[in-house]
Design a binder for these strands. Structure first.
Length: 224
DNA sequence: GAGTCTCA
DNA sequence: CTAC
């Protein structure tokens, strides 16, 4: 039996340690940075609430006339939307006609910092898609390919209820790994992993002290 | 499978 | 062919 190790202490209150036992390489160009957004989570969630006041969560429809189970909104100069005409980025919220709410400094700073930690310095996102999952909500395997420059990475922040992240490959039929994601986890992928297929399994029932019966995901991209 | 878009 |  190995001797028990004392629990780690946080020498920098207000900052998340830049290493965690659950850190993991998902593949070339793709990293799970476990817990990196945990201490900022309450602030991030308050900002999400303010954004949703101006640009409400809504269930977008797909080109095939279906309704997505994920509720979405955006902040930043560009917002990702889906409607009967397909997927694209817009400068305005089609629901209100107003520009998407500005991206809070805390959002862009977190995205830039975690991207740099993952090996993508100088990331300046202009789009933040905010996805709200409730029990039963899922996102089928897909690629993020509506952006102009695939040299820029993607940063994904998980808040609230845990979920199983599906991590596939460049081809739709490639084998899929199941990666548990928890509150505060950040996944960064780019370079050779930029067009990897990914998704989220149906969210199990549950409750989280900060979000209730919900998981919120922030996806940062350079779209334009 | 239906409905939509691809491809400037 | 598919962020249904």
């Amino acid at each position: 039996m190995p001797p028990p190790r004392p629990p780690p202490t946080d020498p920098l209150p207000g900052l998340d340690l830049e290493s965690d036992a659950r850190d993991r390489v998902l593949g070339p160009g793709a990293l799970l940075l476990a817990g990196r957004a945990r201490t900022q989570a309450p602030d991030l969630l308050a900002l999400v609430a303010a954004i949703a006041d101006a640009a409400p969560f809504r269930h977008m429809s797909t080109a095939g006339g279906r309704t997505m189970s994920v509720a979405m909104t955006n902040c930043g100069a560009l917002g990702w939307i889906s409607d009967s005409r397909g997927y694209r980025y817009t400068t305005r919220d089609p629901l209100t006609g107003a520009p998407w709410p500005a991206m809070p400094d805390a959002f862009s700073a977190l995205a830039a910092h975690t991207a740099a930690e993952a090996g993508y310095p100088g990331f300046t996102p202009d789009a933040c898609l905010i996805n709200r999952y409730e029990p039963g909500t899922r996102l089928t395997l897909h690629q993020d390919r509506n952006e102009r420059d695939f040299d820029q990475p993607i940063v994904s922040v998980s808040l609230g209820l845990p979920a199983v992240f599906l991590w596939g490959g460049p081809a739709r039929a490639d084998p899929v790994r199941r990666v548990p994601l928890e509150h505060g986890d950040v996944v960064v992928w780019g370079g050779p992993a930029r067009l990897v297929h990914h998704g989220i399994n149906p969210l199990p029932e549950g409750s989280h002290p900060l979000t209730g019966r919900a998981r919120l995901n922030l996806t940062f991209r350079r779209a334009g």
